[in-house]
Design a protein around this nucleic acid. Structure first.
Length: 505
RNA sequence: CGGGGUGUAGCACAGCCUGGCUAGUGCGCUUGGUUUGGGACCAAGAGGUCGUAGGUUCAAAUCCUAUCACCCCGACCA
């Protein structure tokens, strides 16, 4: 039995495995602040790559970045009824602006410093951005406004998990305003497409694009679209959302303009976002029992060079070889950027050092010692397949881009196969129940989930109650799904389209 | 907010029931040596207000009271 770097394995205890991968890869850790994480350099470097990739795509689709306040006056939230209801219960509220010592010398909020109007820490910025847009828009010539902001937001969730759900999280939120509903709808779909493109081509994470049902809609939105991915425990992860807000927020925030006919109209708005949750998705899509596995496009380093020597006489030529190889590799390109190479010449045992990079998910590792130099090659290991081969130096330099492409493609294909193998078309209640009944009989082992079920459905209290009881959710109504009509698997009422059902994060 | 649990070294924990020498173990860390192409070994060290406050006692990590924090299960969720 091969020993795995991560204990427990995915099969033994998936949630615990997830935590251990993060720890072993040095991505993040819990902080002294409840529910808030410290993102460590390796995790942050991944986030920077995500930001960079997405930011380029946003700009290519005509958006600009800006920044709006962290605090929102309480009354702003109040203006949109559904929005209040959706977010009021999880807001951090600022009520004072000064601290004073009490009788025991403990610092408390100064009663004399109470704010006239409390501020909430933004859970999302529709209201503050909308009220700003109201000032910017007078004429149809002022539209569209296409703005994104990279920011942190706070949602006071009851239970938190690193990257997947934290009290404070980092994200981007795009907020656009348009003169027509059609244009805003197009924007909503365009950005959903950008997210799907990014998820599949950068993260190597296959996603289903679809619309959310009424129950899963963003508070205040007319329609919500999402990309949904299957994790290795077969649970669904909502990885990004794009909302068509209609005129709900523009009416609440008074975003009005005069159209070409001189009529005063309310603008049509959208919002869309992805968060640090993507890193959670990345981990759960590709990583294995030896730790993190990174798709090359997002890996902070593509290849690590591991010099091996036993004495000072060996050390000098090995390091020379390694440094010159690094230069040659860095002159190569992969996916439009330079190949990212690191040398790890720390004074550590070879095996331990090797595992260090395995657990951090570096796509390629090259061991280089006197034996390799004699053959003018390297001993190359692939993180995704575990394959190890001796490679000629010149050949490695020449093929590095292709090798990284192969890894990226393999990760995507592997994830897609997992999803396809665990997606089933289901038409009857019995099949539905059988599908979603936990496969693992053991009490102390977390269940292995069944996957995605494509079912006809008819929304209503009876379906809601049934799903809640079985802890299954409707993930989305796929845009590219089977659109032949049928009957709801539960109620037999007529159904126009199938939706994806799954257990979810 | 309901139910359960835990606070002892950087981390993971034992010791508590049945109070008693200088509070232990493993990992990690430091130093020295032997090793070194997939997670080494030996030796010597450093590191603690036992969550906090009060009480009982000759004596408290251990018993009692209060308090704080965190974790797990439920409702909520990018």
């Amino acid at each position: 039995m091969a020993k795995t770097a991560i204990t427990p394995t995915r099969n033994d205890d998936y949630p615990e495995w997830y935590q251990q991968v993060i720890k072993a890869a040095d991505l993040a850790e819990n902080s002294d602040v409840r529910g808030c994480m410290v993102i460590k350099p390796w995790g942050w470097a991944i986030w920077e790559n995500i930001q960079q990739g997405l930011d380029g795509m946003f700009k290519a689709t005509g958006h600009e970045n800006a920044y709006f306040p962290l605090f929102i006056p309480l009354s702003f939230l109040q203006k949109e009824a559904d929005h209040v209801e959706g977010f009021a219960k999880e807001c951090a509220v600022v009520t004072h602006h000064r601290l004073v010592p009490n009788a025991e010398g403990k610092l408390i909020p100064d009663p004399n410093s109470q704010l006239e109007e409390p501020l909430i820490v933004r859970p999302t910025s529709e209201t503050i951005i909308g009220s700003t847009y109201a000032k910017w828009v007078q004429s149809y010539r002022d539209l569209p406004i296409l703005i994104n902001q990279w920011a942190n937001v706070v949602r006071w969730e009851m239970r938190t998990r690193l990257f997947l759900r934290t009290t404070e999280f980092l994200w981007q939120e795009g907020h656009t305003a348009h003169a027509t509903a059609v244009e805003a709808q197009e924007e909503t779909m365009k950005m959903l497409g950008v997210y799907a493109d990014f998820a599949e081509n950068w993260m190597a994470m296959p996603v289903i694009q679809g619309e959310k049902t009424a129950g899963e809609r963003f508070p205040g939105a007319v329609s919500t679209y999402a990309i949904e991915a299957m994790m290795q425990d077969r649970k669904a992860l909502q990885a990004g959302t794009s909302h068509f807000l209609g005129q709900n927020f523009s009416k609440a925030q008074e975003i009005k303009f005069q159209d070409q006919n001189g009529q005063v109209e309310y603008a049509w708005t959208t919002s869309w976002g992805v968060s640090t949750r993507l890193i959670g998705g990345l981990i759960m899509t590709h990583s294995d029992d030896d730790g993190l596995t990174l798709p090359p496009r997002l890996a902070p380093k593509h290849i690590v060079l591991l010099p091996i020597y036993r004495s000072d006489e060996e050390k000098t030529p090995v390091l020379e070889y390694v440094h010159s190889l690094k230069k040659e590799l860095e002159a190569q390109e992969y996916a439009g950027s330079k190949v990212r190479v690191m040398i790890d010449d720390r004074d550590m045992r070879g095996g331990e050092k090797n595992w260090y990079h395995v657990k951090r998910g570096v796509p390629l590792r090259a061991e280089i010692g006197p034996k390799d130099i004699a053959k003018n090659g390297v001993f190359l290991a692939r993180r995704d397949t575990g394959e190890k081969v001796g490679v000629d130096r010149a050949e490695l330099v020449q093929t590095i881009g292709q090798r990284l492409t192969d890894i990226q493609n393999n990760l995507f294909a592997r994830a897609k196969k997992l999803r396809e193998d665990n997606t089933k078309t289901i038409d009857t209640l019995d099949d539905f129940l059988a599908f979603f009944t936990p496969r693992s009989k053991s009490e102390d082992k977390p269940e292995i989930h069944a996957g995605f079920a494509n079912c006809h459905y008819s929304e209503g209290p009876d379906l809601d109650e049934f799903l809640k009881k079985h802890k299954v959710t409707i993930r989305c109504i796929p845009l590219a799904g089977d659109s032949s009509p049928g009957q709801c698997f539960l109620t037999n009422r007529p159904s126009a389209k199938r939706a994806v059902f799954a257990k979810s994060y």
